[in-house]
């Protein structure tokens, strides 16, 4: 199977700017969470998406609020790409009452159903059936919506991968399965844990298209997603896209990442950086000027600082919130 790289594209300037902004929001958000977490300010634990920005952004660039996504424990990037509010996200990670989930979910469960974001998920493989269900609703209610199921290479060995993709395939649901193969399930290499060479190879078993994409190339992801989403919206059923990517940080914050080699880290962080690659492309293609890009970067930095201030100044939930929203009624 060949790895798809960007070929011909028709990105509007507006879309290109949005994508660059979102990629920067994700990177800076995660770098900031990394920094704050190391100070011991944040409760619980966090899994950072930095390095994988091209995947969430390249796919979500095609979606609107009425389309759904399911996410993973590494969900901040998907939230941002799906236009979730940065202040609400940061407050959620702080466990504050103003968080997207009122402090009840935290990093691993950030969600905003009004944005079509069906939740980060603490259960590896949890998203497959959920994506199928959202796809079933779209099909039966004829909403025209598509659902994207983001999952990691670890989840590709989970039983729900099989059950979910098979169901979506037999019912021809408008669901796109997007594997984010960052090479490691926690600390276990993909090559050890998976009997396949590519996750996308498994698509053949379900009689659906499978495609391997350079997940550091946001244009390549954008193009592959475009093809898959068009198929889905045309009632042709699901597609499996595998994005080969890399996470810049550990599985969770505090992971010493002893399983990575220094050379591999250097190469990914310095030579293969997705944002750098897209930045160069935008300049070379004259879609954006240096000044415009710097402006975007600076505006994002301000937005992230604002989100931190918002989160820090927000109140914690109170005792009366403990029993709220267990049920609609009880």
């Amino acid at each position: 199977m060949t790895v798809a790289r960007s070929q011909s594209i028709a990105l509007t300037k507006e879309k290109a700017r949005w994508m660059y902004q979102k990629m920067n929001e994700i990177r800076q958000f995660e770098d900031k969470v990394h920094e704050i977490f190391s100070k011991g300010v944040l409760p619980g634990f966090v899994h950072l998406y930095a390095g994988e920005e091209a995947v969430a952004v390249g796919v979500c660039a095609h979606l609107t609020d009425k389309d759904y996504i399911t996410s993973t424990h590494r969900g901040h990037g998907h939230c941002i790409a799906k236009d979730c509010d940065l202040n609400g996200m940061m407050a959620e990670i702080y466990g504050k009452a103003t968080g997207l989930c009122k402090g009840k979910g935290g990093s691993m469960h950030i969600a905003d159903v009004s944005k079509g974001m069906l939740g980060a998920n603490g259960i590896v493989g949890g998203g497959f059936p959920l994506a199928v269900g959202a796809g079933l609703t779209a099909k039966l209610k004829k909403t025209g919506a598509v659902t994207v199921c983001f999952f990691g290479d670890g989840a590709n060995n989970h039983g729900t991968f099989h059950e979910g993709i098979n169901l979506a395939a037999i019912w021809k649901l408008p669901v796109i399965f997007v594997a984010e193969n960052n090479g490691y399930a926690e600390s276990t290499p993909f090559e050890y844990a998976s009997s396949c060479r590519n996750i996308a190879d498994r698509a053949g078993a379900y009689n659906i298209p499978g495609e391997v994409v350079d997940g550091k190339d946001v244009i390549a992801v954008y193009e592959a997603a475009k093809r898959a989403i068009e198929r889905a919206r045309n009632g042709e059923g699901p597609t499996l896209i595998e994005c080969k990517t890399y996470r810049n940080y550990g599985h969770f914050e505090g992971d010493a990442q002893t399983y990575k080699t220094p050379e591999e880290k250097r190469r990914h962080l310095q030579e293969l950086d997705a944002i750098e690659k897209f930045r160069n492309y935008l300049l070379a293609s004259q879609l954006c000027s240096e000044q415009e890009l710097v402006e975007i970067e600076q505006n994002v930095a301000k937005a992230i600082e604002k989100a931190v201030t918002f989160a820090e100044n927000s109140p914690f939930p109170t005792e009366e919130d403990l029993l709220r929203d267990v049920y609609v009624s009880y």
Binding site: Y68, T70, V113, L118, G126, F128, P129, L130, A131, V132, G133, A134, L136, T137, A138, L140, K141, T160, E163, G164, L167
Partner: peptide
């Protein structure tokens, strides 16, 4: 699992 999110999305 599909029924769970079918419920969460309007069915």
């Amino acid at each position: 699992g599909a029924a769970v999110s079918a419920a969460a999305t309007g069915l």
